[in-house]
Amino acid sequence: MKKIFLTLLSVTTLSTATTFAQGLKIGFVQSEYVLGLLPEAKAARQDVAAFERKLNNKLTAMRQGLELQAAQLQQEAANLSDTVRAVREQELQELQQDILSEQETAQQQMQFKVMQAMSPLRQKVQQTIDSVAQLNGYTHIFPASVNGQAMLVYTQNPEESNVTPLIIEALGLSEPTETSGQ
């Protein structure tokens, strides 16, 4: 009886595993690559770069103002009373703190700007991935890499598993042609 139960359990397990494996279709996508091909991504990157230049210009002006005031204080230090010199040194320290605070704020603003600019594009790519997956019967699509680190360890048929060309085609994009010598 125990032998029959174990045989029946083995057959059921193998049958379930085979059915499950037959229903699985896994693919991978290079979504950051696809994102970079979108014409809107170039405009978004330019917008972010212009915003970054604006923030950097403001910080540079603040640093230059600090350096100028510090140089003036150094020149005039011998002629100033201890009280006046201490007040001016305190002002310089406060200005330096303002600059540090502004740097932190600028970093946060940059992160928000990048998210704001790229979020609709990422949504567009994700919606296309979802659509291509449904149309082609994929049950799972994974990123090929995350933060530049390869995520794909092994795939038996990389040409069949790579849905990146399908995504590019669905978005109406074309891959750049490689030129010799690059």
Rank of each mutant, 00 (worst) to 15 (best):
K42N: 13
V125M: 00
A144K: 10
I99T: 07
V114L: 08
E94M: 05
K54Y: 10
K54I: 07
V132Q: 00
A133G: 07
N147T: 04
H140C: 08
Q107V: 07
N136L: 08
E102P: 06
N56W: 07
Q103N: 08
P39A: 01
R122V: 14
R53S: 13
A144R: 05
L95Q: 15
E91I: 08
Q111L: 12
S101D: 15
Q149D: 06
Q134R: 12
Q93M: 12
K54E: 15
Q123L: 12
E104A: 14
I141A: 02
M115N: 15
Q93G: 05
I99H: 06
T60P: 08
P120A: 05
D130I: 01
K124M: 05
M110Y: 06
Q74W: 05
K113R: 10
L92V: 03
F112Q: 15
K42A: 11
G148V: 06
Q90C: 07
S145A: 09
Q97Y: 06
A61G: 10
S119Y: 08
S119K: 10
Q107W: 05
R45S: 14
Q97N: 08
Q97V: 09
Q116L: 02
P143K: 00
M118P: 02
R122Y: 11
A144F: 12
L55Q: 13
R45Y: 11
N79S: 14
R88L: 08
A49K: 07
T128F: 04
A78R: 12
E104P: 09
F142T: 07
T83Q: 14
A71K: 14
E102A: 15
M62L: 02
E89I: 11
Q103P: 07
M118R: 03
Q108H: 11
S145Y: 02
I129K: 01
I141H: 10
P143F: 02
A86I: 07
Q134W: 00
D98V: 01
A70E: 08
M118Q: 08
S81I: 00
Q97F: 13
H140M: 14
I129S: 00
G65E: 00
Q126G: 12
N136I: 00
K54H: 13
T60W: 08
E94F: 07
K54T: 12
L92Q: 02
K54W: 11
L59H: 07
V146F: 12
R63N: 15
Q149P: 00
N136T: 04
Q127P: 03
Q134K: 15
Q149W: 03
T139C: 03
D82P: 09
N147S: 06
A43P: 09
Q123A: 10
E67T: 09
A43C: 09
L66W: 03
A133E: 03
Y138K: 01
L95V: 12
E104V: 13
I99Y: 01
R63H: 13
M110N: 05
G137N: 10
Q107F: 03
L95Y: 11
Q123G: 04
L80V: 04
Q111R: 13
E91S: 09
E89F: 03
L73R: 01
E40I: 05
V146D: 11
Q93R: 13
L80C: 05
K42Y: 09
M62V: 03
Q97T: 09
Q109R: 06
Q90W: 02
V146M: 11
L92M: 01
S145L: 04
Q123H: 06
S81E: 06
A61W: 03
N79T: 13
Q93P: 02
K54R: 13
Q75F: 07
A44S: 06
T139M: 05
E94V: 13
